[in-house]
Amino acid sequence: MTNRERKVTSTGTPPWKSPVALSLLLHLVIVLVAVTGWTWSSPSHEPPPRSISARLISQQPEPSPVVDTRDQPDRDQQRRAEQERQRIEEERRKAEEARRQAEAQAREVERRKAEEERKRQEALAREREAKAKEAARQKAEAEAKERARQKAEEERKRQEDARKKAEEERRRKEEQARREREEAERRKAEAERKRLEAERRLREQQLEALAEEARRAEEAEALRQQQAAAAKAREAQMLSESEKYQALIRERLSAAWYPPSSATEEMTARLQITLLPTGELADVRLVSGSGNAAFDNSALSAVRSLNRYPVPDDRETFERYFRQFTIEFNPRRLR
């Protein structure tokens, strides 16, 4: 507000950039104020408009250089003319000056009076303006307030919406997460259940298997015992069978063995013999000799002399006892 007033008061020193615009604006404002003020104030306040017109003239010369530029070809002359004209001008102006000073003094009194009037008017205007301004300000302020309120309201609403939206989103997400979690949990539970079920089943199967195994073991044991008994019986049978054939072999070999006259009871020859199931001799090997070649030879010859060894028909007994065995020649009772 204050800035505006100051502008008005410093008319004498306005910026030289746009003096016309400024002067016009100022005059417009003065007129406007005068008219306005006039209507509702006393007629004593008439003079101020003249002074305003004067001022307008004095301000006219300044755009002249534009015209000068058209007379340039004849400069000296022009310059002396000018100088003369300037001196006439000077004297005229001095006369003018003296008359103006008189007028100024008159006008000064006038002006002071107008001034006062104007000041008073201005104060009034200013007061009105302030009042209007205040009203406008108040109005703007109210409006601003309202706007701000609305804006805040909007903002609040927006925020509320956003919040709600976020909340909604959060809830949705939460719901989804929950669902997912629940789903996962459900699946997990299902898996666990299945696992447990599987484990249970496995355990059951294992138990069953164990039971089965135990049962089988029991059966196997029974069978084994049965077989062992049978095997024992078989063994006994094989043994007795074996002994029978051992005796036969012993008898045959005793009859076939001619101990040499150099034989002594200290001499022993061991032969390992291998038979075919037919009783035929497949191989004979002197495992340990007596140290007497004739004695060893007599044993080898005896073993080889049997065309067929008496062996059991039973293959198992044969394999067990007679496939390969050792014969020891050791005279105990020399003639």
């Binding site: 012993r250 070999l253 005793s254 001619y258 101990p259 065995f325 050792t326 014969i327 005279p331 009772r333």
Partner: peptide
Amino acid sequence: LLIRITEGA
């Protein structure tokens, strides 16, 4: 199996 022959022909 070991068969001992202690007597000759």
